[in-house]
Amino acid sequence: MKTIILSTAIRLLTPLFQVFSIYILLRGHNHPGGGFIGGLIGAIAFVFDTLANGHESTEKTFFTLKVYQQPRKSGISYLQHYLQFIRMNIQRKKEAGQLDVQQQYCIQLRPVYLMALGLFIATISGTISLLLQQPFMTSQWPEFHIPVLGSPGTPLLFDLGVYLLVMGIILKIVFTLAKE
């Protein structure tokens, strides 16, 4: 399957799929779709990428964040240091060579974290109402509206949790399987 054209095409399409999956997630409340289907679509994009390029490549491209770090120079305040740190990481492609990079380490977004986050969001969206002395999962609809979403109520939060969790799970399974 590893033809260059296919793998490149899939690599390019994957972000597109992600956008699509988020769209599916968001429209779910009113049209076919929802967190589950959205999550599946998003995950399947990565799965195809894994099939085409191998899981290391997928993990490296989409789930790893390289971070450059520099010890604080004397005479610079903390605020300045962190600003510099952020700027350094944003502009890293251009300036990586110029800065005296001391350390470089990778933050891996492991699927387990996605799972935990998803489950946490889903649960917390229900718990909010418990804290308001209402039954678990009583939907809370805030007054304000966001252009695409409409009112972002807790059911949408719940759906987001489902989305993240499903994505995390499928990725976890597929990556583990691919590692075998």
């Binding site: 049209h31 779709g33 929802g34 967190g35 229900g126 999962m137 939907s139 009112s151 059911p155 719940f158």
Partner: peptide, 20 residues
């Protein structure tokens, strides 16, 4: 429940616990 897709509303609201 402010949703037009009844199935989805059931999943995330009416019977959200099932989904959990």
């Amino acid at each position: 429940a402010h949703g037009r897709n009844i199935v989805n509303v059931i999943l995330v609201d009416f019977r959200g616990l099932d989904t959990l």
